[in-house]
């Protein structure tokens, strides 16, 4: 009993108070900045085709944030900006004109009915579909004592019947296609579909695999894209908050 209490006291307070303004270590590779001169980079260095040099862009929906281009080319720099979510697939494409502040302001289009329906509580069913378990580990971390996503009424639930939407990770294998669609139909309307990680948004490093079946993404509307490889818990929580809160 006393040992338990002692352990508790040693731990102190662990939660991050202000998630929306939480500091991030400098080394984190988040929002990229493309400077003049980056056109000369070799785009073949990029494992996913996220980097294009003519015209110069980085597609955060494909990017694994591996930093290979940054290490090879001075004109590309990854900032520690972690608010990367967008409601619009196109907006994930970063150009030399993009800057982080504007991106954060404009990337997520807030809709009144979404805020009204899901703003106070959002229960999500996660579907893991052939990724690497990296995104899953970070989604689990969202609910730990540090990030404590539950304080905003956002939780992962066991049954799709209890959920307001699904979060997909992984590039969606043929073997998972049926279960994914089935799960989607089990979620009552109105519902959200959130793509989490490079794999689910674009196939990521697995995009050329012959074992995928990504038809689901063409059939159903996608509400939110959250880039990363894996998605950092702060990226995920802030992404959701920016969509369901005013």
């Amino acid at each position: 009993m006393f040992d338990t209490l002692k352990s508790r006291i040693y731990q102190g307070k662990q939660f991050i108070k202000d998630i929306q303004n939480a500091p991030m270590r400098d080394q984190f590779r988040g929002f990229p900045i493309l400077k003049e001169g980056a056109e000369v980079c070799d785009e073949n260095i990029c494992p996913t085709g996220a980097l294009k040099t003519n015209p110069l862009t980085i597609d955060m929906g494909k990017c694994t944030f591996c930093g290979a281009c940054e290490r090879a080319c001075n004109a590309i720099e990854f900032t520690n900006g972690y608010k990367l979510a967008s409601t619009d697939r196109e907006k994930l494409v970063v150009t030399p004109q993009s800057d982080y502040e504007n991106y954060v302001k404009s990337a997520v289009e807030v809709k009144k009915e979404i805020v009204k329906t899901f703003g106070h509580s959002l229960k999500l069913r996660q579907v893991s579909a052939a990724g690497c378990n990296g995104c899953e580990m970070e989604l689990n971390a969202c609910s730990n004592v540090n990030f404590d996503m539950g304080r905003y009424g956002i939780d992962f639930v066991a049954s799709p019947r209890h959920a307001d939407g699904i979060v997909i990770t992984g590039p969606i294998s043929k073997n998972m296609a049926y279960a994914l669609e089935n799960c989607y139909h089990s979620v009552p309307d109105p519902k959200l579909v959130i793509l989490c990680g490079a794999c689910s948004i674009s196939g990521g490093v697995f995009q050329n695999s012959t074992e995928l079946n990504r038809e689901f993404l063409e059939k159903y509307p996608i509400d939110l894209y959250i880039p990363g490889c894996p998605v950092h818990p702060l990226t995920f929580i802030n992404g959701i908050l920016s969509y369901i809160r005013k």
């Binding site: 052939a130 992984g170 697995f206 695999s209 074992e211």
Partner: peptide
């Protein structure tokens, strides 16, 4: 369910 043909991808790319 997680099968995504990694061994083939590794050979190709």
């Amino acid at each position: 369910y997680q099968h995504r043909g990694v061994e083939d991808l590794m050979v190709k790319n």
